[in-house]
Design a protein around this nucleic acid. Structure first.
Lengths: 112, 112
DNA sequence: AAAAAGGTCAACCAATCGGTTGAATATGCC
DNA sequence: GGCATATTCAACCGATTGGTTGACCTTTTT
């Protein structure tokens, strides 16, 4: 269990990997497509995906020559629960959540 | 913001640092007392505390020659919210939370 | 004043990390 | 069969990490 918290938090600590997770939030993707928006090599992205898969944050399934990457949001549950054990904080702050989603361009900008 | 998520998740990725946070959940502690249960040097613990402080997870206040360490649970909020953006998962699973707390000896074992 | 206690600093070390490149391995297409 | 596509592997590199030790500074105690 400590080991899994290690791998999950380590995986989440890198901005490239968090960006990949955000991308996968919209749809499953092939490795090459995941790599496309980044400046780094395909091999580097492949390694990041392996770290995410080891942490259980994504799953990868090979169909033909294409390896599909799929978000596994359930794997965040344990880490989320661990964090909540420190929580005199509201587990769901809708305003803050909205801001985060907007920052990630997952929802449209606020009307002015 | 990305930078802060980096520092928070990086800080949480180390088991020693998570253990320190758990200890501070019970009460504020001096650096020496934080170090006591661990096998490593005081200097090593001092570094870990610095990482936690940089992430905003704890605050440190020096009174006399003693530096007191205090948990700052609010700093987990942003990371928690980020994680919830992936959440088709229940943000508060009480049974799971209870198990986690028990594993950390923060609440007594279940009656049998 | 001298000694003890609480912490940090600086230098060092081995291991890990995040990246690169080039070769290798499958798979799909003509 | 032969070429292009999708992905990983292996070796390498510099930077960071997690730890050590010994010296140092500050504060309290005697």
């Amino acid at each position: 269990m400590t080991q899994t918290l290690d791998t999950v938090f380590t995986a989440l600590a890198d901005p490239t990997r968090r960006a990949i997770l955000s991308m996968l939030l919209e749809d499953d993707m092939a490795v090459t497509d995941v790599a496309e928006p980044f400046q780094m090599s395909l091999a580097a992205i492949s390694k990041h995906l392996q770290v995410l898969a080891d942490a259980g944050l994504i799953s990868q399934e090979k169909r033909g020559r294409v390896k599909w990457c799929k978000l596994e949001p359930d794997s965040l549950r344990m880490a989320s629960v661990w964090m909540q054990s420190f929580g005199q904080f509201d587990p769901l702050d809708l305003d803050l959540l909205e801001g985060v989603l907007r920052d990630q361009d997952l929802i449209p900008p606020e009307e002015v």
